[in-house]
Amino acid sequence: KTVKFDGLQFDFDNPEKALKFALEVAKQKGAEVHIHGDEIKIE
């Protein structure tokens, strides 16, 4: 899975870790997590 935000991109082999990371970043930024297939966007 790939996590994208602020023009940055982070690749994870483990989908659970990717989602956990995305949710943590979103919480800190006050943003929402959007999942599109293998891509997780924080907006």
Rank of each mutant, 00 (worst) to 15 (best):
I40E: 00
K1Y: 15
I42H: 04
K20C: 15
D13C: 14
A26Q: 01
K29H: 13
G37R: 06
A22N: 00
A18F: 04
F10D: 01
A18C: 12
F10Y: 10
E24Y: 12
V33I: 12
V25I: 13
F5K: 00
H34M: 09
E43W: 13
F5D: 00
E16Q: 10
F12W: 03
V33W: 08
A31P: 01
I40F: 07
D38Y: 10
E39M: 11
I35N: 02
E32P: 05
H34Q: 08
K1A: 13
A26E: 03
L8R: 10
D11Y: 15
K41C: 15
K41P: 00
G7F: 06
D13Y: 05
V25D: 03
K1G: 06
K29T: 13
K1C: 15
F10C: 14
E43C: 15
I42T: 01
K4L: 13
I42L: 07
E43P: 05
Q9S: 13
E39L: 12
E24S: 09
K29R: 13
N14F: 04
G37I: 07
K20Y: 08
I35F: 10
A26G: 01
F5A: 02
I42D: 03
L19S: 00
D38W: 11
H34W: 13
V25N: 02
E39F: 11
K1V: 15
I40K: 02
I40M: 04
H34I: 13
F10K: 01
E39N: 05
D11T: 14
Q28D: 08
A31C: 15
N14P: 00
I35H: 06
A26F: 04
I35K: 04
D13G: 04
V33T: 02
E16T: 08
G37V: 06
I42M: 03
A31F: 12
A22C: 13
V3E: 02
Q28R: 12
A31I: 07
L23V: 06
K17Y: 11
D6A: 10
L19H: 01
L8M: 12
H34V: 13
E43K: 09
H36F: 12
F21W: 11
E24W: 14
A22K: 02
Q28L: 13
D11N: 12
L23C: 15
L19I: 07
V3C: 06
L23Y: 12
E39Q: 08
K20Q: 12
V3R: 01
T2V: 12
L23N: 06
E24I: 09
E43L: 13
E39C: 15
P15T: 11
E32Q: 14
D38C: 15
E39S: 07
A26R: 01
L19R: 05
H36W: 10
H36E: 12
A26C: 14
F21C: 13
K27Q: 10
Q28P: 01
T2N: 04
K20H: 07
G30M: 06
D13A: 08
F21Q: 03
K20V: 07
A26P: 00
K4M: 12
I40D: 02
P15G: 10
L23W: 10
L8S: 05
I40Q: 01
E32N: 12
E43D: 09
I35M: 09
L19N: 00
F10V: 05
H36Q: 11
F10G: 03
F12H: 00
V3L: 04
Q28E: 10
E24M: 12
K27R: 12
T2R: 09
V3H: 03
G7Q: 04
I35Q: 05
D11V: 14
K29A: 11
D13T: 08
L19Q: 02
Q9W: 08
I42P: 02
L8T: 05
V3F: 06
E32C: 15
P15S: 11
P15E: 12
G7N: 07
E24T: 07
D13E: 10
D11I: 14
L8K: 11
A26T: 02
Q28Y: 11
E16C: 15
D6K: 09
E32M: 14
F10W: 13
A22Y: 00
H36K: 09
V33K: 02
E43I: 14
K27E: 09
D38G: 10
I42V: 09
F21I: 04
F5V: 08
L8D: 03
E43Q: 10
I40Y: 09
F21D: 04
K1R: 12
L19Y: 11
E32W: 14
E16S: 08
A26W: 03
A26K: 01
V3P: 01
D38N: 12
I42G: 03
K17N: 11
G30P: 02
K1I: 15
K41S: 13
L19V: 00
K27M: 12
